[in-house]
Design a protein around this nucleic acid. Structure first.
Length: 336
RNA sequence: GCAGCUAGCGGAUA
C-alpha cells in the first residue's frame, strides 16, 4: 500500500491527476487495499481534474471502508465537490458529518458563499470555535464576490480591530472589493496599508492595484503599474487587457494581446473574454469573429457562455443578426 | 518541516 500511495500522491503533487487515477485503478486490480492516504490523494486528483462522476464513485467506495469519518478525508471531499462545481453534494455531505475542525469549516464558508448562501456562510463564521486567517479571508471574499461590498469592508475593519494578522490575500481581496465598487480613494488607502507591511511589490497586490485603477477608469495609471511590476503569470496581463477592454481601447486590446502571444504568456479563458469584449466595445467584428474561432481551433480553449455572450453581442450590435442567431443555436448551453 | 481550506484578472445589462 505504501508504495502505491507514494506513487499516487506523487502524481497529485506533480499535477498528473490522470495518472493518479490510473494508478488507483491498477492498485485495485492487484487487490491492494486502499487506505486513508490513498483516498485523500485520489479525491485531490478528482478535485484538480474536476471529474465529478469519478469522484462520486470513489466516494461510495470510501464510505464502505469507513474512511469518510476521517476529518482530512472529509475536507478533501468537500473541497472536491466544491471544485467540481457540485455545491449541492458538498452541502449534503457536510450535513451528514458530526465533527468539524477549522479547515473543514473554512471550506464550507467558501462552499456556501459560492452558492450565494451568504447568511449560512456567515453563520458558520460566527459560530465556529476558532477562526484562522483563512476563515476571515474566505468570509471577506464571499461577501465581495456576492456583491456585499459594505459587509466585506466591515469585516475587514473588524479584523483590524481585533488585531488579527492581515496578509496579502486579505488586502488584495479588499482592494478587489474597492475596485468593484469604484472606490478609488479607499483602495489607495488599502494599498498604503500593504506598503506598510512590506507588500508593495507583492504580485497579487500589484495586480489588484492595477485593476483598481483600470476599474475606476484610469487605465494610464493602471498601465504604469503594469509596466513596473514583476509578472510571474498571465493574471496581470489579463487584468490590463480587461482594463483596456472595458474602457473602450480596442487597438490597445489587440496590441496587448499580440504582445502576450509574442512573449509566450499563457492565454486562458479570461484572456479571450478580454479580447472579445474589447472587440465588442469597439465594433471590431472581423477581429472578434477571428479570435472567437481561433480560441478553440488554435488555442484549444472551449468557449464558455461568457465568450458566446461577447461575440453574439458583437454580431447583434453590428447588424449581423443572422450570424448571431446561428451562434445562439449552436451554443452548447442554455441561454441565460 | 509537506496529506485538507482562502487570494489577485472573469461576458452583456436600462
Amino acid at each position: 500500500v505504501g508504495l502505491w500511495n507514494s506513487m499516487i500522491s506523487g502524481c497529485v503533487l506533480n499535477r498528473r491527476g490522470e495518472q493518479a487515477l490510473e494508478l488507483f485503478k491498477g492498485m485495485k486490480k492487484e487487490g491492494v487495499e486502499a487506505n486513508l492516504s490513498t483516498f485523500a490523494s485520489v479525491f485531490s486528483a478528482c478535485a484538480s481534474l474536476g471529474v465529478l462522476e469519478n469522484g462520486k464513485q470513489v466516494h461510495t467506495q470510501a464510505c464502505k471502508e469507513g474512511v469518510v469519518n476521517d476529518m482530512i478525508v472529509a475536507s478533501i471531499l468537500i473541497d472536491m465537490y466544491s471544485k467540481c462545481g457540485s455545491l449541492g453534494d458538498a452541502c449534503k455531505f457536510f450535513s451528514e458529518l458530526q465533527n468539524y475542525d477549522t479547515i473543514l469549516l473554512n471550506s464550507m464558508i467558501t462552499v456556501y458563499s459560492n452558492c450565494g448562501r451568504i447568511e449560512e456562510a456567515r453563520c458558520i463564521f460566527d459560530t465556529m470555535p476558532s477562526r484562522s486567517l483563512i476563515s476571515w479571508n474566505s468570509m471577506i471574499v464571499g461577501y465581495s464576490h456576492n456583491g456585499f461590498f459594505l459587509e466585506a469592508l466591515e469585516l475587514f475593519s473588524e479584523m483590524r480591530r481585533q488585531g488579527c494578522r492581515i496578509d496579502n490575500v486579505s488586502l488584495a481581496s479588499i482592494m478587489s472589493t474597492c475596485a468593484s465598487s469604484c472606490s478609488l480613494r479607499l483602495g489607495e488607502q488599502i494599498f498604503a496599508l500593504a506598503i506598510g507591511i512590506g507588500l508593495e511589490s507583492d504580485q497579487i497586490i500589484s495586480t489588484s492595484l492595477m485593476n483598481l485603477y483600470c476599474k475606476c477608469g484610469d487605465v494610464m495609471e493602471g498601465r504604469r503599474v503594469f509596466n513596473e511590476m514583476e509578472k510571474f503569470d498571465e493574471v496581470p496581463w489579463n487584468a490590463i487587457l480587461m482594463g483596456y477592454a472595458i474602457n473602450g481601447y480596442g487597438t490597445e486590446v489587440l496590441q496587448l494581446f499580440e504582445d502576450m502571444r509574442s512573449t509566450g504568456v499563457s492565454l486562458n479563458e479570461t484572456t479571450f473574454i478580454g479580447v472579445l469584449s474589447g472587440c465588442g466595445h469597439c465594433g471590431m467584428v472581423e477581429e472578434g469573429r477571428k479570435w472567437f474561432y481561433a480560441m478553440k481551433d488554435i488555442y484549444h480553449i472551449e468557449p464558455t457562455i461568457e465568450h458566446y455572450s461577447c461575440v453574439i453581442d458583437l454580431f447583434a450590435r453590428a447588424g449581423c443578426l443572422e450570424e448571431a442567431m446561428v451562434l445562439i443555436d449552436k451554443m452548447p448551453f442554455e441561454a441565460d
